[in-house]
Amino acid sequence: MTTRLRTLATNRLLLLGGLLAIVFLGVSVAHPGYASAQNIRDLLVQCAPVVIIGCAMTLVILTGEIDVSVGSMMGLLAAGIGILSSPERLGLPAGVVVAAVVAGGILLGGVNGMLVVAGRVPSIIVTLGMMTVLRGVTEILMGGEWITDLPASVRYLGTGEPLGLPLSIWTAMAAVVATVVVARKTPLGLHIYATGGNSTAAAMARVHVGVVRVTVFAIAGLMTAVATLVSVPQQSVIESGIGVGFELLVITAVVVGGTSISGGYGGVAGTVLAALLLANIRPALLYLDLGDRATFWERAIQGAFILAAVLSDRCRWFRRADGKAVTITTGGSP
């Protein structure tokens, strides 16, 4: 059983890596500019917030929960950045803003977690509700105005390039490393997998299932705050629509990355590869220059691509009624 899952997971990573290579190399052949350092850098910057939140979302989904409020949370935290830092509003120094936004993120995530654990409300309900509430609160806070005068110190979070790489890429790398370490090398990681695999069994094995759940939601809040801090100040304007639909992007990356939606298996590596792959689709279509009519088909192509990515390993792995895997010979190798 475990071997089969492991094979499946490895297959998924190979598959995503392969697809990524094909897309990237294919477009680069058609348009050499695609392989330029500048473009690779832009692609990574574009992925960074998806990867950062995706790391946390992977942990949330590994425990068998889900968080659809991250997009609205991002919107609220972005409004927070603007209101706290803009000289016309509160004009607080950047350090205070960062601390407040991080604390706000952990708090919001913690509230989600507490409602799930202590309130025993299913996470989909809690976060679906939060998604609407936080969006409404953001609209009320912004009051129909934009914030366009972010101080340079805050803009640096989005545009600064320490050691030659944008801060968001450094942060994303740190987030991936930290999450992999937590997931693989710490008791918390083990407990996350155990909770998602079978929470009753985990509880019997003295895993504090509730604590684990609250922690992963708080991590999701923290990572959302971090992603907001390094991605939103890249733009000059803070408006109330920031983060709309972002949760879908992140969840898509996690599930395309092979993490089981019912929890228990999967990992960050898949999420990162999937985020990179998904980030390539739209620019690839732009570089290929398929013409105006093709633009209207972009969304359909994206959907088909996601479907193909999640289905591709299933073609070989139809399971029989008794739950065992069977290899369908026409599907090829393994």
Partner: peptide
């Protein structure tokens, strides 16, 4: 048929069907 989780399938067709309509 392919036994993919419904959330995953419909997450993909959520984009695909709207995209088809747009196309």
């Amino acid at each position: 048929g392919a036994r993919v989780h419904p959330l995953i399938v419909t997450l993909a067709t959520l984009a695909a069907y709207r995209g088809l309509a747009e196309g």
